[in-house]
């Protein structure tokens, strides 16, 4: 009876897993079909040759190298910036005493409730004033900080006994030295987790880059992929090949660093 129950659990989970995986499988399968053929589900042949050249064609049809470069640049700088500004602020909120600390912290947390979409309009206007539309600055600067990251890091910083901080201060370490020599190395897993989450968000961001850029030179991968659809029309094999470009780097990152990502999400959402 117990064995049957366990077997049932596995069966249900496997069914779900197939449903989760199916779109990814199709994505790859279609990307290897002959280009510009209309495909009907029961008839296309598994045995037909795999058309790897679709990837080459797709890569050539649009400046994907440029998109990759842009996405990498934007993701790396925004993630780095977010971590830097959040680490500093998280340290102040967890270790320093100053006027208005509690009020300021609550105020910042309250700001996280504002939907980013509402801020899109005035931010667009600000960037227009700064002549930043269609620049890397527009893609990067507004995202150089994250209150979520600050909050998650502050929670982590608060878990260390105060004696550690006092010991370091007594031993001649300044706040700055304590932060970078003790607190940051101690919290490397949390910082990695938070950084990965921010990187995923940044890599996949769509609406903001769509609005603040309109030249191919500045497009990030998701925007580039979207514009690619209008070029290929119903040429699904090419489109799916391009989709694979976009998806693969994060899938690899995820599979490699899964434990950090899982820990990061759990920490940021449940320990608040």
């Amino acid at each position: 009876m117990k064995k049957l129950l366990i077997g049932g659990r596995y069966l249900l989970l496997a069914l779900g897993a197939v449903a989760m995986l199916l779109p990814f499988v199709w994505m790859v399968v279609i990307s290897l079909q002959p280009a510009a053929t209309t495909l009907t589900l029961p008839t296309f042949a598994w045995s037909s040759a795999l058309h790897w050249e679709n990837y080459r064609h797709a890569w050539r049809l649009a400046p994907f190298a440029q998109y990759y470069g842009n996405s990498l640049l934007v993701t790396a700088t925004t993630t780095g910036g977010q971590l830097f500004t959040s680490i500093l602020a998280a340290f102040a909120f967890s270790h320093l005493h100053f006027y208005g600390r509690r009020l300021l912290f609550r105020g910042l947390i309250a700001l996280t409730m504002i939907p980013g979409e509402l801020l899109l309009i005035p931010n667009f206007i600000t960037l227009t004033h700064l002549h930043w539309i269609n620049t890397y600055a527009a893609l990067i600067v507004p995202w150089l900080t994250s209150i979520f990251a600050m909050f998650a890091l502050r929670q982590a910083f608060l878990t260390h006994p105060q004696s550690l901080y006092y010991a370091a201060r007594l031993e001649g370490a300044s706040d700055w030295q304590y932060l970078w020599h003790v607190l940051v190395p101690l919290n490397r897993p949390v910082i990695t987790a938070v950084g990965l989450l921010q990187a995923i968000g940044s890599w996949n961001a769509f609406m903001w880059p769509l609005i603040v850029t309109n030249s191919p030179r500045l497009r990030t991968l998701p925007v580039g992929l979207m514009t690619f659809t209008s070029q290929t029309g119903t040429n699904y094999p090419l489109l799916m090949a391009a989709t694979v470009f976009v998806v693969v780097p994060l899938l690899i990152l995820y599979l490699a660093l899964q434990k950090y990502i899982v820990a990061g999400i759990t920490r940021a959402n449940l320990k608040g």
Binding site: P161, S163, L164, Y166, A167, A168, L170, E171, V182, P185, L186
Partner: peptide
């Protein structure tokens, strides 16, 4: 110099 009750050794 201070030795804390929990020793406060840097774990890393």
């Amino acid at each position: 110099g201070m030795v804390f009750q929990d020793y406060a050794l840097y774990p890393h």
